[in-house]
Design a protein around this nucleic acid. Structure first.
Lengths: 205, 205
DNA sequence: TCGATATAGTTGACATTGTCTACCTCTGTG
DNA sequence: CACAGAGGTAGACAATGTCAACTATATCGA
């Protein structure tokens, strides 16, 4: 039950997840193997398979939790009634998350995912994060007041998301190291992106 | 000579590369193994290692060629003396490439790369592609004429690149399948991004 | 209370992969 | 003609995902 529902067993499941995440932090996604998880936990190489049918299943579980954490992180921003300021705050949280949890961010957005259809929980959590962004843009009335464009907010959300994701993705990609940009320049690039985003988000004719 | 200049040997190197790419197209990056390459070519499992010291080396070679092809693709756009139109054309080429060669695009920008320092040719080719974009923005005079901001174009290039890369990356990521967007909506999203980008790229105060 | 059953774990096995080392087999050149 | 070296072959090794069989243990129904 709630207090101690098979304390030992289900602990292994949790332990596997956090240990797997730790391995990914240590050695990258390609360093993750269920055997390594088992080895670190001091159990047999097959024990994790009692809790996860395959390697993809543990990855999907990790991803589901990442999306969840990510969405909560986006929500923890200074409250504002001005939708523009609110969106800006969310954008800053977005970038902050990518900088604070680069491995998890890459895992969510820059790594081939397990088949979403096979892991609906992961899928739902991912959708929820996107909905947050789209709903902020719905509040912003980027179309003349009279018109009704239900999908317009989604399109603008795609635009904002693209820029945020692209920036975050580039900032932590190896590609940047090759462009020899300094940290200061990267900071400036981020500010510039926010400035340009603000310019772009005016009501369309 | 030309007809049969060690027809077997040096051909094998090329054959490995194109076969490897084919494998990636068929089975994804995780389906690529040098043994599979050898198997498909009907040679021993060690033959490819005579031409590539390790799996990363063949990947780096493939990536170098992809970046090269990508840069050339960007350059093959309708010529225009108006820098705004020219940039727009390049953006459209960018998205077209991502759509025409999704596997290669993902390989370049959405997949962990071999260590750039260990593969300088790959790195140089990557830099060249970014320089193309930055130079277009240099032409655009996004700052008041009198001012001199050498790095300003780079910052704006980062912004444009972020949006393009983010959009391309999202468009082909699994994430989108979970958001249940139709093809028409995706097309609209692309148009919207270009429209917003145009709005954003006005001279800064 | 006792036995059935499900759960969680162990051990052993198999195919696949990257990579190492040793061997063969041409081919051109002194 | 010998021979050196490039290109290709063959065998071995450790690591991985996954399958199957076995064991211990705890829970539940009779």
């Amino acid at each position: 039950m709630a207090a101690k529902p098979k304390a030992g067993p289900s602990n292994l499941r949790e332990a596997c997840i956090s240990e797997a995440l730790q391995i990914i932090e240590d050695a990258g996604i390609e360093g993750l193997s269920l055997r390594e998880v088992a080895r670190r936990l001091g159990v047999s190489h097959q024990a994790p398979y009692k809790h996860f049918p395959s390697r993809d299943h543990i990855l999907a579980e990790i991803l589901a939790r990442c999306f969840d954490e990510f969405a909560m992180f986006l929500d923890q921003r200074p409250p504002s009634t001005d939708p523009f300021i609110d969106l800006r705050g969310m954008g800053e949280r977005y970038m902050a998350y990518a900088q604070l949890h680069p491995v998890k961010y890459r895992l969510m957005f820059n790594t081939p995912m397990p088949d979403p259809d096979a892991h609906p929980q992961m899928m739902r959590n991912a959708q929820r994060a996107f909905a947050l962004l789209r709903d902020r843009l719905k509040d912003m009335k980027l179309r003349p007041a009279g018109e009704f464009h239900p999908s317009s907010a989604s399109l603008d959300a795609m635009f904002v998301w693209s820029t945020l994701h692209g920036l975050a993705s580039i900032l932590q990609s190896d590609t940047l190291r090759t462009l020899q940009m300094s940290d200061i320049e990267l900071q400036q690039a981020m500010s510039r992106c926010f400035a340009r985003l603000s310019l772009a988000l005016i009501p369309l004719p």
